[in-house]
């Protein structure tokens, strides 16, 4: 019993959460990865820019009062021939500042992307936990539905759900509801990955003896799933969530580009690209170029971050 006479380690438990994070392997790996730092910086910058769009944007592109049609088709960084006004990224046909529309568009894109992923995540986690923990018919039904859904491209599934949901929405609310329908559609098309990963992790964790110990105590299945298993299954979920975020943003852009997503009154990056491509061959390249670059930067950074996260959280690679 004299084991205690040897101090094991420093008093790690006295440290705060922040300090423990700063000393963790995770933060260490982050500090040593230039890709992670750069992509994190890009994502953070873009998210902040979107959140504070009203403060940053020179104009509010959706306020008709601030629009001047005379400013239409101003090339970037050049003074307009009539008003002598100059715009960082030029203007579109209606004289809207492209930079401002990008900031506002990013808000929609990020909002839809993040909400859709959160929705897919919650749905996938619940279904994954339930099918992994209970097994049997519950599992068979849930996972077969997942298998069937996986045989269709998710963008197709999203379009289908979008169409059906739109059909149920009263006409007068359609534009208002479009964003929410979009979130529902992308979320429903994306839960399968979460469910599969969570189910796999649940199967692994379920067989470990700490779960047996909790069952022995008489804990309810829900308490075991939420309090014991879920925290140990979260690492892969975080990785998938990050990668899914990039995919969801692209999916939203694709839907909007195809004209079935965000309405022109609330243009997302995808809508902007759709609008911009009409002007590409008439010489007004900037209307397409800058939104497309933003989308590329955003999706690429989130994806790289997700890739890095997968490596950093994978204990086998340490």
């Amino acid at each position: 019993m004299a084991e205690t006479s040897i101090p094991l380690s420093t008093k790690e438990h006295d440290k705060g959460r922040w300090q423990r994070f700063r000393e963790s392997d995770f933060f260490y790996a982050f500090k040593r990865s230039p890709v992670a730092i750069v992509s994190f910086a890009v994502v953070a910058l873009l998210v902040l820019a979107a959140v504070f769009a009203p403060l940053i944007a020179p104009t509010n592109p959706f306020d008709p009062a601030s629009l001047n049609l005379m400013n239409g088709f101003t090339p970037p960084m050049e003074p307009n021939a009539f008003t002598q006004e100059s715009f960082l990224m030029g203007t579109d046909d209606q004289g809207r500042d492209v930079f401002s529309t990008i900031l506002y568009g990013m808000r929609i894109s990020l909002f839809v992307g993040i909400s859709a992923v959160l929705f897919a995540m919650v749905l996938g986690i619940v279904l994954g936990l339930v099918s992994g923990y209970f097994g049997g018919w519950t599992e068979t039904i849930i996972m077969r539905i997942a298998d069937v859904q996986l045989t269709f491209p998710s963008i197709l599934v999203a379009m289908l759900i979008f169409g059906v949901a739109k059909g149920f929405t009263p006409v007068e609310y359609r534009d208002q509801m479009a964003i929410w329908v979009l979130i529902l559609a992308i979320g429903l098309s994306d839960w399968v990955q979460f469910a599969r990963v969570v189910r796999g992790a649940t199967l692994v964790e379920k067989s470990k003896d700490y779960v047996a110990a909790a069952r022995l105590i008489g804990r309810s299945p829900w308490a075991i799933m939420i309090r014991h298993i879920l925290p140990n299954a979260m690492s892969p979920v975080l990785v998938i969530a990050t990668i899914s975020l990039a995919l969801a943003i692209i999916a939203e852009a694709t839907l909007s580009f195809l004209g079935v997503g965000a309405p022109p009154t609330q243009p997302s990056l995808g809508t902007l690209i759709r609008i911009g491509q009409g002007f590409l061959f008439s010489g007004e390249w900037w209307i397409l170029f800058f939104p497309a670059c933003t989308l590329l930067g955003l999706a690429l950074s989130v994806n790289l971050l997700g890739d890095w996260l997968r490596d950093a959280l994978n204990p086998r690679l340490r």
């Binding site: 004299a2 084991e3 006479s5 040897i6 380690s9």
Partner: peptide, 10 residues
């Protein structure tokens, strides 16, 4: 034997 083998880092 009291105690346990020290960790390599300690």
């Amino acid at each position: 034997i009291p105690g346990s083998m020290p960790r390599l880092t300690q």
